[in-house]
Design a protein around this nucleic acid. Structure first.
Length: 493
RNA sequence: GGCAUCGUGGCCGAGUGGCUAGGCACAGCUCUGCAAAAGCUUGUACAGCGGUUCGAAUCCGCUCGAUGCCUCCA
């Protein structure tokens, strides 16, 4: 008996615009694909929020006992700069600017991506395929689409015929657009002579002689179009139809729209049952942008080496901050908001640390079983982490009340509380207790015990000058003493 | 200009056709040698204008504003 059999999960499906009951195609198994980063620069915080949302979803499914195959790709080629760019691809362009090999760029930023995600305590996906590793699969899909009559070749490039596709299918159903509207609203672009219609998109681009990233194909040397890699890799590892496709809001159009078109054109099937889109992260109310300077990298957040925040923030604090908002809402990052989250994070961690030492009684003053189900209910309702966190703080309050002797808890409920908190905080939200690590040192705790003893002796002797000196100097070192009914404890900030 | 999402108290951020989100900040109280921590209590709210309704912040319309997409983008 798996946990998921007792829970009804509802997810917001972008395709229908509604919350729907989640039922996997194959019972007990979930196939999930998320569009990964293009590794041509350091990963930025907005990226991290999207991937973090799906990391949380992945974690929750696993916790419920589903067998999840989570595929998140690395885009290391085939990312067209734009239609007017003579087919130069994003990776190759960056490489030329920096005078290094394209794969060197890929390597450098893939490493940065993994390092950053590790700091944020991400679980690795089941498969992390690269676009360049799936050129053959992409070529095969292009062949199929051409055979079905939905693509055409011009001068060594292959384009998807959107108007033709729209005759038998519905192009724009995910993003709520109509082809007719797009035609009237398309701006004039240069260098699109090859395309029969401005809405058509590249499946394969011919490589000019100086172009470094190139592969042979039935249409000559070239490289794949951006939208195709996701179709190729999701189909290969998850099948022609799979459960969940995720990504950032901004990928809805054209990227995900094109993925649907490619799949429907080649297999005749709609590829995805549930489309999930994570919303944007803004910085001080404005979109993040490198050009305006309204931008901050994860490493700058962690180090405090930036002009936007007043201090450094631990990865776990940033993660907690992001989990306090629903993944479908725009979230605004600011120093004030982070400071508030940091305090909340510490309060949560402090409470978690003292659960183990709680004294038990024969009965409980609180319905912990009902509380536990509320936590599940929150997650089941489209992964509502802010509501979950509200319930977690309810537990924090309970813990503190018990600690002060104002409420009681039974042994049975205590272990339920302990395991439930660990599951939701550490396993599902993925929030680490980054200060507990320091408390491990036995030398430190020995010293602290001694200092607390000395201070309490001084207090007993009304030598407040000494006791306050100990307390104040410890504060200056970032160690806070807490006088409770059961004695004095400390925490390191 | 078109499409989409949204506009909640000092800040962040949930939710809902009538009944307390939560965190942070602020104030009072309890505890304390004094603090801190913790607990208790209180206040300020649903952009504006119309409409539907017994009743709307929640549904509809308009206005204003924000963000995203429409061109690479999580």
């Amino acid at each position: 008996m798996q946990l998921y059999q007792n829970q009804t999960i509802r997810v917001h499906n972008s395709l229908t615009g509604k919350k729907e009951v989640f039922e996997p195609i194959n019972e007990g198994h979930i196939g999930m694909y998320v569009c990964g980063p293009t590794v041509y620069s350091n990963v930025h915080l907005g990226n991290c929020r999207t991937f973090m949302s799906f990391d949380m979803i992945f974690r929750y499914f696993k916790h419920l006992g589903f067998k999840v195959r989570y595929v998140r790709n690395i885009t290391d080629a085939g990312h067209l700069e734009n239609d007017a760019d003579e087919g130069e691809d994003k990776i190759a362009k960056k490489a030329k600017l920096e005078q290094i090999e394209p794969m060197e760029v890929v390597q450098r930023y893939t490493v940065d991506f993994h390092e950053t995600l590790q700091k944020f305590n991400f679980l690795p996906p089941s498969i992390e395929p690269t676009a360049t590793g799936h050129i053959i699969e992409q070529i095969e899909i292009i062949k199929e689409i051409i055979e079905k009559g939905f693509a055409y070749e011009v001068n060594g490039s292959v384009y998807f015929d959107v108007p033709k596709f729209n005759e038998s299918n519905e192009y724009g159903k995910l993003s709520g657009r109509k082809l007719e509207d797009m035609i009237t609203n398309t701006r004039a672009l240069t260098a699109q002579d090859e395309k029969r219609s401005p809405q058509d998109f590249a499946l394969w681009k011919k490589a000019e002689p100086q172009h470094i990233m190139r592969w042979p194909s039935p249409w000559g040397d070239g490289f794949p179009g951006w939208h195709l890699e996701c179709t190729a890799m999701s189909t290969k590892y998850l099948g022609e139809t799979f459960d969940i496709h995720g990504g950032g809001m901004d990928l809805k159009f054209p990227h995900h729209e094109c993925e649907i078109a490619q799949s429907e054109a080649s297999t005749g099937k709609s590829p995805v049952k549930y489309w999930l889109h994570a919303n944007m992260l803004t910085l001080n109310g404005k979109k993040m942008s490198k050009s305006t300077g309204n931008n901050i990298y994860p490493s700058e957040m962690f180090s405090g080496d930036n002009s936007i925040m007043s201090k450094a923030y631990a990865p776990a604090v940033v993660r907690f901050f992001m989990m306090q908002a629903h993944y479908t809402s725009i979230l605004d990052l600011s120093d004030d908001a982070l400071l508030a989250s940091e305090k909340g994070y510490h309060r949560l961690m402090d409470a978690l640390e003292c659960v183990d030492g709680l004294k038990t009684a024969t009965t409980s003053d609180f319905d912990y079983k009902a509380w536990k189900q509320k936590c599940y209910d929150a997650m089941n309702d489209d992964f509502n982490t802010p509501i979950l966190i509200a319930h977690l703080f309810d537990a924090v309050k309970r813990i503190n009340l018990i600690k002060e002797g104002n409420e009681s808890i039974s042994q049975e409920d205590k272990s339920l509380l302990q395991t439930t908190l660990a599951s939701f905080v550490y396993d599902i939200l993925g929030i680490e207790n980054q200060k507990a690590v320091k408390d491990d040192s036995s030398a430190l705790s020995g010293v602290m015990e001694l200092l607390i003893e000395l201070r309490n002796e001084a207090r007993a002797n009304k030598d407040f000058a000494t006791s306050d000196k100990i307390r104040d100097q410890l504060i200056a070192l970032g160690i806070q003493l807490k006088d409770g009914k059961e004695g004095t404890t400390f925490s390191i900030n």
